[in-house]
Design a protein around this nucleic acid. Structure first.
Length: 333
DNA sequence: AATGGAGGCAACCGCCCGCCC
DNA sequence: GGGGCGGGCGGTTGCCTCCAT
């Protein structure tokens, strides 16, 4: 087996010796890595390119942070994992100096066990059934939608210490919040037949944690690039998105305006399946309104509204502003 | 002191995706 | 269009260390 680049040459496996590290380090410091497949030969190593790349990324890179994870890093991992799932590379982007491998190992060896010990399913971040049934585990809490995030302060990790959040990473959260749940778009939706690209925000279960406290969203890329068409489905039209670019922050209100300007309602689809889908979404939203809020929002309406996103996040347990008894749980395990 | 289990971590494996020809 | 290749990523494995017995 093995990767194609490894099968063509005699390669060494296993732990790297200090001499090998030095060769790789010297080579990359002098020439850069260029094509990884050519690095072993140029550096005089009997390793495959992938192995060199991995060694560099996970160990030799000069910007790596050493040592154990801080509590803030731990919380960041939990919060981002709750949204992104096992997207270790994406999670690692939120932790400067940490690698995906490191985050993954830390999760599997430490955080996962802590969550389980506190009665949370590490995959869903929801309470485990046994914990729900056992009041002693959850401090007599009856809310089955409580999330592991509520172990922490309701202020998001973005407000804890912005230096721990890379500038381009918060948008991953924004995108992933839409991508987390199964797509509600019809598999038969015919995008090609539409004369223009039409989309609709497909996942109302938005985690808008960036918008809760810091009042600022950081951006290194134009908004148009940040908005991933994958989290949009039919019925909203993408207009020319104003470009706010390159490494600056802008207020929440500005982003809200941008999004509102960028997504305008269009006529609903005539596709019977889409109509049924929209009807289901509207029904679901009505339940949301009845149960959680009187806010004048509806998934059927195409007005994109931050309040809407926040309110719809509540019933699905994606986000909860309210302090719950879970907040009182100690993180130290 | 020897041994076995648990935990942590580095590295590998296999798959996927994008690019190029 | 499709095949090859390189890079990236998540899952898994295996080794090393520590600690209890």
């Amino acid at each position: 087996m093995g990767h194609t680049c490894c099968s063509k040459q005699k390669v060494k496996r296993g732990l790297w010796s200090p001499e090998e590290d030095e060769k790789l380090l010297n080579h990359i410091n002098t020439y850069g890595h260029g094509s990884w497949s050519s690095v072993p030969e140029l550096a005089g190593l009997e390793r495959c390119g992938k192995s060199c790349r991995l060694r560099w990324i996970n160990y030799l890179r000069p910007d790596l942070k050493r040592g154990s994870f801080s509590e803030i890093e731990e919380r960041t991992i939990v919060e981002v994992h709750r949204i992104l799932g096992n997207k270790w590379a994406q999670i690692a982007k939120h932790l400067p100096g940490r690698t995906d491998n490191e985050v993954k190992n830390f999760w599997n060896s430490c955080i996962k066990k802590k969550l389980i010990a506190q009665g949370f399913d590490p995959n869903t971040h929801n309470l485990l059934p046994s914990s729900k049934a056992n009041p002693s585990n959850i401090n007599n809490n009856n809310n089955n939608n409580i999330h592991a995030c509520n172990m922490f302060s309701p202020s998001s990790f973005f407000s804890v210490n912005s230096s721990h959040v890379s500038a381009d990473a918060s948008i991953d959260i924004l995108e992933a919040a839409y991508l987390t749940l199964p797509s509600t778009s019809s598999p038969n939706a015919n995008h090609e037949s539409s004369p223009i690209s039409t989309y609709e925000f497909q996942n109302p279960n938005m985690v808008w944690s960036e918008f809760q406290n810091p009042n600022m969203v950081w951006s290194t890329t134009p908004v148009q690039e940040q908005i991933n068409p994958n989290f949009l489905t039919e019925s909203m039209e993408i207009n020319s998105v104003p470009t706010i670019s390159t490494s600056h922050s802008y207020p929440i209100s500005e982003l809200e305006n941008i999004v509102n300007e960028s997504f305008q309602p269009i006529t609903k689809s005539t596709n019977p399946e889409d109509i049924q889908l929209q009807s289901q979404q509207e029904e679901a939203c009505e339940v949301v309104e009845d149960e959680e809020t009187n806010m004048d929002v509806s998934f059927g309406s195409s007005n994109f509204d931050m309040n809407f996103m926040e309110s719809t996040a509540l019933p699905c347990g994606m986000y909860n502003y309210q302090l719950s008894p879970m907040d009182q749980l100690a993180w130290n395990g």
